[in-house]
Design a protein around this nucleic acid. Sequence first.
DNA 1: CGACGTTTTGAATTGGTTCAAACTAAGTGG
DNA 2: CCACTTAGTTTGAACCAATTCAAAACGTCG
Lengths: 244, 244
Amino acid sequence: MSPPPLITPLIEKMVRRDVITPIERQALAALLGPTRRVAAGKALVEPGDRPHFSTFVVSGFCARFTLTPTGGRQLTEINIAGDFVDLHSLLMRQMDHGVVALADCVVAPAAHEDLRRLTEQHAHLTRLLWLETVVDAAIHRQWLVTLGQQNAASRLAHLVCELYLRLEAAAIAQDFKFGLPMTQVDLADVLGLTQVHVNRVLMELRRQGLLEWKAGQVTINDWDALAKLGQFDPAYLRLQNDPV
Amino acid sequence: MSPPPLITPLIEKMVRRDVITPIERQALAALLGPTRRVAAGKALVEPGDRPHFSTFVVSGFCARFTLTPTGGRQLTEINIAGDFVDLHSLLMRQMDHGVVALADCVVAPAAHEDLRRLTEQHAHLTRLLWLETVVDAAIHRQWLVTLGQQNAASRLAHLVCELYLRLEAAAIAQDFKFGLPMTQVDLADVLGLTQVHVNRVLMELRRQGLLEWKAGQVTINDWDALAKLGQFDPAYLRLQNDPV
DNA sequence: CGACGTTTTGAATTGGTTCAAACTAAGTGG
DNA sequence: CCACTTAGTTTGAACCAATTCAAAACGTCG
């Protein structure tokens, strides 16, 4: 028996949405090149790069980031195992953002040449890959809503709910517990807040018994209350079956 | 001579990025069904809808919106002539947001059935349509940066710069002037601010001589200063030629 | 002219920032 | 195995950008 291919977490995600044929599985598995380790804090992709491959996350946590001229940093999406962090670079050659490893990661490249050939030969698979980038956009829109309309506690609650559901869908989390290797500074850069304020809000959520968060381990103690506080509705994650 | 097809503004945009063959032009033009007028303030698409077609903007202004349980409204993208407002609904069937006409619009449907057939027969055109949704995501990311990292004046300046460049690319604006039929309430819902504060910031930009804005007509008096204030870098709009 | 949508102004309030420092945990090397 | 370093978290107090609520002014259209 050979070990499961590295692409497995992506196939798991796709299978929730549609039927994938053995030929399609094979075509996906054939995309990935040799894996590479990236240490926590290192950038996988720099803003402005013109990669000739897209990077797939085999394990670990990373985040898309944009640096501002004034020294700020905004994280625009958290990516986990099974995600492509820059699939869009197949079409938008120059990276409009960078990607940083939040924890040690294992990643694998998918050459644009091979991806382009896949779009010529596998229309259904192409639509499923397109869907991956469409879900990225839906996540961005949802974050816009939280940044534009919700206060600090609500934003933090929303983020925790999103991460849990995505990790659960990838079979990385269950029972309302998950490892989340992010510092409060990272969190602040996601939520558009200062690190100090993130700390205060996090303590308040702990005090209210909604969640625990220590040593990189999160436990959600009251999902309903957290989802309500965060005004969380998972529809945008598109985790239901609905063939494309 | 027949009049130019309704799809023309989209082709104009695509031609800036890549070569489009006559056959491809024909395939795109064949997508659009009969036009429909939508009055300012009316929704083209409601959140939660499961449309069997994607809506193309022939003329006018519209915006994607999300309503929050607390009565808030966040606009997540402004769409202009040549944009699909919900191309992603081909793949993510249930709308995660609504679309409202900011001014009177003319729109046309592209049946999902026809779009899906196009993905089976025209791989290159499929990549160009995919790119449209990828640019939407890039716009969302950029807005996340402005909401998360920039103050009110900077956000407003950024928005004006983005709209001008997109309108100019669509040949709807030139000479740093354009019609923008948005109220200060709409603006507040884009920028994640209150209407009152938008008013104060707008007056301050006027006072500084950066722009004029009256009766729905915007004139940018000092592009460089506005772009600097808004930390505006147009790379994310992907307006350069770069074949896919 | 009257009405309604929109913009403008004022004054009090607040959620989040800023800056500075103390505290805790986890290495690392002597 | 303990001193030292470094990264991350927690606390305090002053401050400020943006909100809130209320009302007045403007514009335009029937």
